[in-house]
């Protein structure tokens, strides 16, 4: 699917869509509608998730899902306020996301609900609870 087709597919579930070019688009949604988008993508035979990125922007942690829609890449942003850092897992629909969600949990402290294997991935086992190295606060602290 090219960007326009992806845009029409997900249009009713997202707040805002920015088409960069034929093969790249950004969209913003929220976690209630996430599953609808995933199902819509799945119906259209989108199976590959390239990565999940977490960005700390101050008060909000943005979780960005990068879906490979052959050839367009859909970047789906889910902003999460810092006092409610919870997001449902997508591993039931995209099992390949299992590692990325573990990474997201330990690096940014986003709680992925229903994840089958919520252990640490990169950080050592004795890493203190509540310390998330890619958060803004942590950067201030470690300067």
């Amino acid at each position: 699917m090219h960007s326009n087709e992806v845009a029409t597919l997900v249009k009713k579930h997202v707040d805002d869509i920015r088409i960069v070019d034929d093969r790249c688009l950004f969209a913003t949604s929220d976690k209630q509608r996430l599953e609808n988008i995933l199902r819509a993508l799945r119906v259209q035979k989108v199976t590959h998730i390239s990565a999940i990125t977490g960005v700390d922007t101050g008060n909000v942690v943005e979780v960005i899902y990068h879906f490979d829609c052959q050839p367009a890449e859909l970047n789906l942003k889910i902003p999460l306020p810092k006092d409610d850092l919870k997001i449902p897992t997508i591993t039931e629909i995209f099992p390949g996301a299992i590692m990325y969600e573990r990474d997201l949990m330990e690096m940014l402290g986003v709680k992925v609900e229903g994840h089958p294997d919520p252990r640490r991935l990169f950080l050592p086992d004795d890493w203190p609870e509540g310390e998330y190295p890619l958060r803004k606060e942590w950067r201030e602290k470690s300067k």
């Binding site: 990474d103 690096m107 990169f122 950080l123 050592p124 004795d126 890493w127 203190p128 310390e131 190295p133 890619l134 942590w138 470690s142």
Partner: peptide
């Protein structure tokens, strides 16, 4: 593969 985290000398005793 292993490039994501930041190693800090102040947290975690083994470090």
């Amino acid at each position: 593969n292993d490039r994501v985290t930041l190693v800090d000398s102040r947290t975690g005793k083994t470090r």
